[in-house]
Each structure stands twice: as structure tokens, then as C-alpha cells.
């Protein structure tokens, strides 16, 4: 029997599941769309995964990350629940030796992580603006009727990218329409959009950070070759895209889970692939104990409450 470690990253746009072995080699990797239904996505992912994992692999630990990490954690029985920043940093330092800067752009958030001597020294996440993240690119691709997979390829063909105002997603769109009406080619507009988004990212998320090579670019948006080129043009050095760029968060969660279980030598809390057979439900109510009126979310497994969250005072957090 070989040992395998499960990592799940449930983000706003995609749900990624991976299984690594003891050498952190990725055995199975899955990329699903969350489509606003994380519970369904996780169940669907686990179901598909159970068919893909080789029979001689036993899951010895499970870790979750992403914005639905707590939900995923209680559902599958995770050994660790980690934030995305740490998960990305751990995975990238494993696969990009000596990495000093990580640029990560996902569905709705983007982050920059600065590492020195293998440890995180600084990080930032977008706070007030989501222009330039995957969702926006997705939306623009569908508006221009370009398959999102072709978006990057198209940008690479451009000779003279047009300048697009990228500070705000709404204004970027109107500026793009304006450029279209002037008759610029689609290639130049798409490439211009990539440059605008990179500019916006570096000015907002990357502000005040010392971006030193090696630079790793990951997250779903790293699939877009136009974005890579725009980053390289702006940063004036090479940008590395790791092999598992789209699932790095999940890889990190799996590595941290492996390390945690190895350290404690405890049996994993992973409930097994059967979680797909359980029925999960979320119901919420408004707590009326104080004027905060917190919306408390209750999570049921087969009709039984297994977790609650959302109360500011912590009154409902414990499940008895």
C-alpha cells in the first residue's frame, strides 16, 4: 500500500482536488468549477477522485484551503485547515526552488507573496478591487466571444497592444468598447487588457513590495499566456509558471497535511470517499441575542448539525 495525501482548495470559481505521494509528486489532479455550490462541487470532486486514485494508494491525511476551507474541512474530515497564502507559499517553495516572489491570481482574489530564504516575509491580497482577476477575464472573453482558453494565445499575436484604463473593471470595459469602436484589432485590445490588468495588479496588490526573481506566477489566470507575457514585460525578467499552477493551493494543503500527520503520528480524520453518499445541508438563522443580528450558518450531515459559523461573539461556534 502506498501513502497518499489529499489536498482540497475550494475557491470562488474553481474547486481543486489533488492527491500527492510521500515525495510530494502529484498523483491525481482535478479542476472543477465551483459554480457557487461548494458542497456539490466537493462531493462531485471526491466522487471523481475516488475513481482516479490508484487502488494501492491509501489516503493518510487531508488538508483544505481556499475561501470555503472550513466547510470543506468539516465535510471531508480534514487534518488541517489552512489559509490560501500559507498553502501557496509552501507548495511553491517545494516546486520552484529559491522562489522569492509569488504572483497568484485566482477567480476573485489576487495575492502577492514575498519569500526570502524559503519563508514568507510579506504578503498582500486585493482588498477593494477585483479588476484583473479571473472572473473579470472570463466575463470579457465571453463578451468578445473568444473562448477563455484562446484568450492568451490571441494576446500573444498582438504587435501594438493598446492602452486600456485598468483601474476599475467597469471602466476597463467601457474603455475596451471605445477602443473597439475606433477599429483596433481584437489582438491588440486583448493584449492591452492583459497589460492593464498587470499594471493594476502591480499598483494595488504589489504596491511597495520588492519583487525579486525567481518569480512564480500561478492560479487559474496563469493559464493565460498573454498575462505571463505582460508580467515579463513589466517586471523585466522571466516569470516561471509551475507545472501545477492551477492547483498550487491544493498541493500546499496536501503538503501541510502530510507534515502535520507525520509530526503527530496520528491517524487521519479523513472520513473516506464515502462522504459523497452523505447528504449535506446548510441552513441559517438570525441570532436575536444582540443588535448585531448575526446570520448563523448551520451545517448538517445526514440531518445532524456538524458545524456552525458566522456568529461574531462565538456563542454558536461550538457544536454540542
Amino acid at each position: 500500500m502506498r501513502k497518499g495525501y489529499l489536498g482540497i482548495d475550494v475557491g470562488s470559481v474553481s474547486t481543486n482536488l489533488i492527491v500527492i505521494d510521500e515525495q510530494d509528486e502529484v498523483l491525481v489532479s482535478l479542476y472543477l468549477r465551483t459554480q457557487g455550490q461548494p458542497i456539490r462541487a466537493i462531493q462531485e470532486g471526491i466522487k471523481q477522485l475516488s475513481g482516479l486514485v490508484p487502488d494501492d494508494v491509501e489516503i493518510c491525511a487531508a488538508g483544505t484551503t481556499g475561501s470555503a476551507r472550513h466547510l470543506a474541512g468539516v465535510m471531508v474530515g480534514a487534518d488541517i485547515i489552512k489559509n490560501e497564502i500559507t498553502a501557496h507559499a509552501i507548495a511553491t517553495s517545494r516546486f520552484v526552488p529559491g522562489v522569492q516572489t509569488i504572483l497568484e491570481i485566482g477567480g476573485q482574489d489576487s495575492k502577492i507573496i514575498i519569500l526570502r530564504d524559503g519563508i514568507v516575509t510579506d504578503f498582500a491580497m486585493n482588498t477593494v478591487c477585483a479588476a484583473g482577476t479571473g472572473s473579470f477575464l472570463d466575463q470579457q472573453a465571453s463578451r468578445l466571444v473568444i473562448p477563455i482558453e484562446k484568450f492568451g494565445e490571441m494576446a500573444l499575436k498582438s504587435q501594438h497592444p493598446v492602452r486600456i484604463a485598468g483601474r476599475c473593471a467597469v471602466f476597463a470595459e467601457s474603455d475596451m468598447i471605445h477602443k473597439q469602436q475606433l477599429g483596433h484589432s481584437m489582438e491588440d485590445i486583448v493584449a492591452g487588457l492583459c497589460e492593464a490588468l498587470v499594471r493594476n495588479y502591480l499598483n494595488n496588490v504589489g504596491k511597495g513590495k520588492e519583487i525579486l526573481p525567481p518569480v512564480s506566477f500561478q492560479g487559474g489566470v496563469a493559464a493565460n499566456a498573454g498575462m505571463k507575457k505582460a508580467f515579463e514585460k513589466s517586471l523585466q525578467h522571466e516569470v516561471i509558471i509551475p507545472k501545477h499552477f492551477a492547483v498550487m493551493g491544493a498541493v500546499g494543503a496536501a503538503i501541510i497535511a502530510r507534515e502535520a500527520v507525520e509530526q503527530t503520528n496520528e491517524k487521519t480524520r479523513f472520513k473516506g470517499f464515502e462522504v459523497t453518499d452523505f447528504s449535506y445541508q446548510t441552513r441559517s438563522f438570525e441570532c436575536k441575542s444582540c443588535p448585531n443580528r448575526c446570520e448563523v450558518v448551520q451545517f448538517f450531515q445526514n440531518g445532524e448539525v456538524i458545524a456552525r459559523w458566522g456568529s461574531r461573539c462565538g456563542k454558536w461556534d461550538k457544536v454540542s
Binding site: 489552512k82 489559509n83 490560501e84 497564502i85 500559507t86 519563508i119 514568507v120 516575509t121 510579506d122 504578503f123 491580497m125
Partner: peptide, 8 residues
């Protein structure tokens, strides 16, 4: 952010 900062 707090969690990540503590890890750091």
C-alpha cells in the same frame, strides 16, 4: 490575513 500573518 491574520492566520497567514501568524504563520509568517
Amino acid at each position: 490575513r491574520l492566520e497567514a500573518f501568524l504563520d509568517l
